[in-house]
Simulated assay, not measured.
Amino acid sequence: MRLRIFTEPQQGASYETLLTVAKATEDLGFDAFFRSDHYTKMGDVSGEPGPTDSWVTLGALARETNRIRLGTLVTAATFRLPGPLAISVAQVDRMSGGRVDFGLGTGWFEEEHAHYGIPFPSLNERFEKLEEQLQICKGLWGTPSGETFSFSGDHYTLTDSPALPKPAQDGGPPVLIGGFGAKRTPRLAATYADEYNVPFHGLDDTGAAFERVRAACRDAGRTRPMVYSAAQVVCCGRDEAELRRRADAIGREPGELRENGLAGTPQELVDKIGRFGELGAERLYLQVLDLSDLEHLELIAAEVMGGL
């Protein structure tokens, strides 16, 4: 099981804070540093100093780190046109030496679209645009050098694109698709994804979602492997007092976190991570909500990751 650190900068984090956490992620031996792609805070927090753009941030972190993989969980297809998005991701992949994983989703938070003047179409149209963006990004990245790429869809048209720049990774970064949908999400994952992620669901629901994607892969005749992963909010303490302190810092209750996330003593976390592994999960994204608590990462690295 590979453990990845997942952050929510829209809740209140400067680039300097993200850099500190990313460097700790690398130094402590975690597999990757991921961030959300949001422009507006959620819940009762200030959100100050304000949002940071995900791909601008990851481009900077690509030059400040050496080993960890970098990515989004997940980029909103509503935020960017597919051609410029493919350029941005390819550039960050080259800047990192081929360490990018590309998560892409429909976008769902209507309020942030209104705040920043971003159109928010119907769910059906968002899924249509997501699929076309996946086709375009993969098509641009996979076009042989010296050839052009064209695409004609219901929402996007590309004509004789030079399909540059090329990512460092042949064919482009691995594609991650997440979500809990019962029909469209499994089909999209089976068709386009290298990794399927279930965010913030319990063991039973996660296992059921994995099975739906496995069935979609069989129906599609897919032969290449799929990586299965999950995301969970994390809150770890050596004892109940330390757990309570960390839960209070993020406005949650220890009992609720144990039920709905990955919380408790290091051994409790090791045991629950093991159950995700039994479902077929190979990676677990640990949603860290208090980015000032680097001792939390140190504890997880030493006593959770070290105990797997």
Rank of each mutant, 00 (worst) to 15 (best):
L18V: 08
F34V: 02
F210Y: 13
E211T: 15
V227E: 06
S152Q: 15
P199N: 12
A301K: 13
G202V: 10
E8I: 13
S145C: 09
F151E: 00
T159H: 11
R222N: 12
L58S: 03
G274V: 10
S150Y: 05
G59L: 05
H115W: 08
S54R: 02
L158P: 02
G50W: 05
G139S: 14
C137E: 02
E125H: 10
E195Y: 01
T157G: 00
V92N: 02
Q11H: 10
C236Q: 11
R222G: 11
A114F: 07
H296D: 04
G29K: 14
I5V: 15
L297F: 09
P254D: 11
F180A: 13
I5L: 15
S96N: 10
E278V: 07
A216R: 08
A281R: 04
R224S: 13
A249Q: 09
W108C: 08
D239Q: 07
T265D: 05
R4W: 01
S150I: 04
R35Y: 01
L58F: 05
I118A: 04
A114M: 08
S152N: 14
V288T: 11
T20L: 11
P199C: 10
G179P: 11
V74C: 04
V227Q: 06
G153F: 04
L70E: 01
G43F: 08
A13E: 09
D204L: 09
A163K: 01
E8P: 04
T40A: 14
T106I: 14
E48Y: 05
L294M: 10
N66Q: 14
E298I: 08
V198S: 05
L18I: 10
L262Y: 06
E278I: 02
A76D: 09
A86M: 02
D154Q: 15
D271H: 14
Q267C: 05
A32Q: 03
E110S: 12
A90N: 11
G221F: 09
E253C: 08
G221Y: 06
G47E: 07
P51T: 13
F180G: 14
N197C: 11
S54Q: 11
E147T: 14
E253M: 12
G71W: 01
S54D: 03
F200E: 09
T106Y: 03
F210Q: 02
T17V: 13
E268W: 03
P84H: 13
E298A: 15
E8W: 09
Q287W: 09
A114N: 13
